[in-house]
Design a protein around this nucleic acid. Structure first.
Lengths: 104, 104
DNA sequence: GCTTACCGTTAGTAATGACTTACGATACTG
DNA sequence: CAGTATCGTAAGTCATTACTAACGGTAAGC
């Protein structure tokens, strides 16, 4: 999976809430949907998007499917964010050593 | 700014491309828009969204406005991502020390 | 085998967001 | 002061997305 699919998957507030609900451990769709302001099929659709983004994994357990967070799916996103820190740090060092040249 | 606004701001492919174009240094709207598949006002709108998310800053330079990346705007998003790593690490440790209990 | 529980998908609807064109405002130059 | 360059915004259009209701499939229990 790539960071752009992870970003897009996490951008939706409801989908992100579904994702965050999984922090407490693996849960079923019905379990997740309880207490949420949207219907169970909507939660199922969001879980599908999170799965396609590589952020969650599921496994069958009887008629239910148990979903859990797949933290590895966030690796690329985190690495991408870090490149901006590296940029800022490089720029800071260059500034400390001499005049800043904005355009490479 | 909060991580949810940063996520939403970066989720759009075109807006993210605008953001990434700024890695090379501060640039004007017209400069950024050159070579992009959308119009200059569209780039301006995206820059507005990035600014509201705290991801870029601008300054006037004559009739032009110069935009540059504000990496500090990514702090909260990075911290939020790290909490998932912390969760995974905690869970791994607990697993190594004894039976895994999925539900807290 | 019927009932219950669970869930993914489809089709339809409504809301949202991305983009464009046009326009007016600001800054700079001659 | 007129012309040029730059840019943000408004209004309109269109595509995309989130959500619902309904349905059919699977698994388990009796």
């Amino acid at each position: 999976m790539t960071y752009d699919t992870a970003l897009a998957a996490l951008a939706d507030p409801t989908r992100r809430a579904v994702f965050e609900r999984l922090r407490g451990g693996a849960r079923s769709v019905a379990d997740l949907a309880r207490g949420m302001p949207v219907s169970r099929p909507a939660v199922s659709q969001h879980l599908k998007a999170l799965k396609e983004a590589g952020l969650v994994r599921d496994e069958p357990r009887g008629a239910a499917r148990i979903y859990r967070i797949h933290a590895e799916g966030l690796i690329e996103l985190r690495a991408w964010l870090d490149t901006f820190w590296d940029d800022a740090l490089t720029r800071f060092k260059a500034h400390a050593e001499g005049p800043d040249d904005d355009h490479a």
